[in-house]
Design a protein around this nucleic acid. Structure first.
Lengths: 150, 150
DNA sequence: TTCTTTTTCTTGAATGATTCAAGTGTGATG
DNA sequence: CATCACACTTGAATCATTCAAGAAAAAGAA
């Protein structure tokens, strides 16, 4: 645990970023949360650990760390942005249309950039983002219960 | 042109939707706009044609037509939603990070659903969405000009 | 350690796309 | 051509996120 915090600190230093309690907390918490939390869930978790944090600080931190390549931001249509620390590899996401729950999906086809468009139309392409949309097991159950009770 | 309006009317009727001037205008305009306009651009175009439309009406219409399968909504992270009438086939999008300009990209790999995730985690998946992110020719030019003038 | 500088955090207000709610108007059916 | 469900208008509300200005804290120097 002290080990891990040291690792988190190192990651910040390597990117030339100052080591602050809120930043360490965000990175450490995201490393441990497998469910791609959104800004509000992250704020809640950091707040629990440090006593309090401002919403603005959380947004600043998420922005800074994302820009530095320490975080990856996922922005599912219709849901607030979610974050993860898995940045080194090429992977995609499976998102529930109902609740926004997000799961990692390993790249289905080869390696990064994973896909090439058939026409690039003069664009300089830097990312091929694949999102699988569906209904998660929990929401599927809720949905059928709702429908079967008119 | 009367031909096309007739076709638009038919599409509405086929979906059991009432034929109203704003709805016809939205569909007709979207059929002619290749650049995936957002709600505001659509409102402007409809307004120009009919004299005026409320923003709310445009949102209602876009929602209704999308639900009916007559439109497809594209929601690029960080940009307002865009719409297109190309709903029959499986295709993806190439989006400019800077200005949001959106181009169609034919499916790079086979047919719909185009991709299968390696793990579905109990989800019922209904769509595989592929987005190519980059910088369009116009923004690329602007960007380099800005950088070269410190 | 203590001082200084630069960056980060806090607070409170603002933004922008989209949605909610209530009332008026209109298309489709009989 | 009357009725009624549905669509449109107006005006306010919501939500995630961002802007702005001042207070606090990290990093490097003395």
């Amino acid at each position: 645990m002290t080990n891990h915090l040291h690792d988190v600190t190192e990651r910040l230093r390597t990117q030339g970023l100052r080591v602050t309690a809120p930043r360490v907390a965000v990175l450490d918490i995201l490393d441990r949360m497998p469910d791609h939390p959104d800004a509000d869930a992250i704020r809640a978790a950091v707040s629990r650990r440090l006593g309090s944090v401002s919403t603005q600080a959380v947004y600043n931190i998420l922005h800074t760390l994302t820009d530095a390549g320490l975080l990856r931001r996922i922005e599912p249509a219709g849901h607030p942005a979610r974050y993860e620390t898995r940045v080194a590899d090429n992977h995609h996401h499976l998102i529930c249309r109902a609740c926004g729950e997000t799961r990692d999906v390993d790249c289905a086809i080869g390696h990064a950039p994973c896909l090439d468009p058939s026409e690039s139309a003069g664009f300089v392409i830097d990312e091929a983002e694949v999102t699988f949309w569906g209904i998660c097991p929990a929401c599927r159950t809720t949905e059928s219960l709702t429908k079967e009770t008119p």
